[in-house]
Structures are given as structure tokens and as C-alpha cells.
Amino acid sequence: MASPGAETKKPEHHSGFVQLCNPHVAAMKEDVLYHFSLSTSTHDFPAMFGDVKFVCVGGSPSRMKAFIKYVAVELGLGQPDADYPNICEGTDRYAMFKVGPVLSVSHGMGIPSIAIMLHELIKLLYHARCSDVTIIRIGTSGGIGLEPGSVVITGQAVDACFKPEFELMVLGKRVVRSTHMDEQLVQELARCSADLGKFPTVVGHTMCTLDFYEGQGRLDGALCCYTEKDKQEYLQAAYAAGIRNIEMEASVFSAMCNACGLRAAVVCVTLLNRLEGDQISSPHEVLVEYQQRPQQLVGHFIKKCLAEA
């Protein structure tokens, strides 16, 4: 097994500029960010992205466009009816929007999709010579022991065995990386939620799985080899271990950001309590309001940070 210690060593950040854990990139004459439809030979990254201080990522393009429109109004940088072009319009893989120092990027669903996006996003920030960047994932999740609509700020990302690590295969070898979260950032976000006072918010462990159905112990997939009793025992054990929600991106997100020295956090709203069922039953308009809660919290956080700068 590859040494976890070697994998979790962060790059030197004397200047505050975003760094990579890959010495090969600096020697490349051109770096094509294929899934963004951007290239260092055809785009001026420092001019386009050099002022970015906050990056928010989430699953769907429509959600991330809604976020950039919301935060533009919050920061006084745009009107509610303003439109924001998709910087990645040359591809249908991801969508990217920008206003002022805020970049909003979609990442799709699951570990492979967000991992590809993060490789290219971190390189984009590096090529743009960005400094002191905070990156936050906003999204939805299944809650454990929480009422629907509760917001969970991830204190620790864990895998399906409740371990705070992310495992992947590199050149046929098992590599394990730490999923440590930035504790100071977690507390700053918790204070911002308290300032808002609009919705219940908790700090808890987030379990990241490889699958939406069997991997999360659902009984309603095409395959199922366990009972309701088995499911309840597993979810109760997760709750006892401090896990308060389940999603499909937090472990690789925290591992990659941690390895590259990026200040990162995960803020997700719960759409249901998994101890009480597997399928989402809230009306559409209620779900829409729930999904706005993480963006309200993160928008307030960004506004507060800029006001104090």
C-alpha cells in the first residue's frame, strides 16, 4: 500500500498561491483542460480567473447558475434578471460561471465526476495564479436522524466503513488519502448559519458512498441483498459514529483539496431522514426551498469575508 503520509503532504504555500502536487505540469508547454474546453494556449487564465477568491461547486449546472445569480445580487455585483454566460460552453460535461471574485462550477454526480472536475479546476486556479482561495461544495444529501431541510456542515468526511479516508487505485496500487476538513472554516460557516438563524444547522460527519442505492443501504434499487433490519442496523451504527448525512462526493473532494493545501468545506441540505424511508416525498416547491439553504449560508459567508477583508 502506498504511504498515506506521503500522499497527504501538502505543498509549500509561502506565497498563498494555489499549488499542485504534480511536478510534471510546470514543464508542459500547453495544458488542455479538456472537460472545461479551456487551454493555456488559447485562454488567458490570469486575466480570466486571477481575481478568484471563492469557488463554489455543486452537482447540477442549473443549481450553480442559480447560485452565481444569487451571490451576484448579495454582493451588489449584478441584478436579479442578469444573465451569466457559461464559460465552459464548448463542452457539455461541466458548466462554469463567474461574478467578481466568485467562481461557480458544476461537478456532476459521484466521485469519478467530481474528481475529474477537481483536477482541472485546481490546475485552472494554479495557471491563473490565484491566491488564498476557499472552495466549498454545496449540495443535497440524505440525512440520518435529522429532519428534512436541515443543513449539515461536514466536520469530517468518511467512507462507507466510517473511516476518514479516501481510497483509489494508482498504477495498480492502493493509495489512501486523508479526508481532513479545515476546522476553522467549519466553525466560521457554523457561525454564519447562527447569524442567519433561518434553518437548523449541525456540524457532523458526512458519509460518502460509491452508489446511490445499495451503497447507501436503500431497499428500492434494482438489486438488494439485505433486509430492512440490516439497513436500520447499519444506519443506526452510522449515526452512533457521528454521521449525520450521506452523499457521493465529500471524500474525494476533501482529499484532493487537502492534498493541494486548499481551504475547503462541504455544506449540504438533507432532503429526507434515511431512518424513516428511502424515497424523497416532500413537494417540489419545498425541495426547491431546501436546496436554496446551502447557497444562502455560503453566500452570507462570502459576503461577510469580503466585508472584513
Rank of each mutant, 00 (worst) to 15 (best):
I138K: 02
V152A: 02
S106N: 06
M207F: 02
S178Y: 06
R177A: 13
H119T: 04
H205N: 06
T179K: 08
T179P: 08
L189E: 05
D195W: 14
L121C: 08
G149E: 10
T179C: 15
L196G: 07
I114G: 06
L103K: 04
V170T: 12
Q184V: 13
K198F: 11
Q156L: 12
V186C: 14
V170S: 12
S106M: 04
R129S: 07
M109L: 08
M109E: 04
I135K: 00
I138S: 04
T209H: 01
C208K: 06
T134I: 13
L189C: 05
V186S: 12
Q184H: 14
I144G: 02
L168H: 12
I136F: 00
L118P: 06
T134A: 05
D182C: 13
F162L: 14
V186L: 11
G139K: 01
S193A: 15
D159H: 09
I116R: 07
E188R: 15
E167N: 14
L171C: 11
L196T: 02
C130A: 08
I116M: 14
E165P: 03
V175R: 10
L185D: 13
I111P: 02
S141Q: 03
H180K: 15
H205P: 00
V158A: 08
A190Y: 15
K123M: 09
S193F: 03
H119F: 05
T134R: 01
V202Q: 05
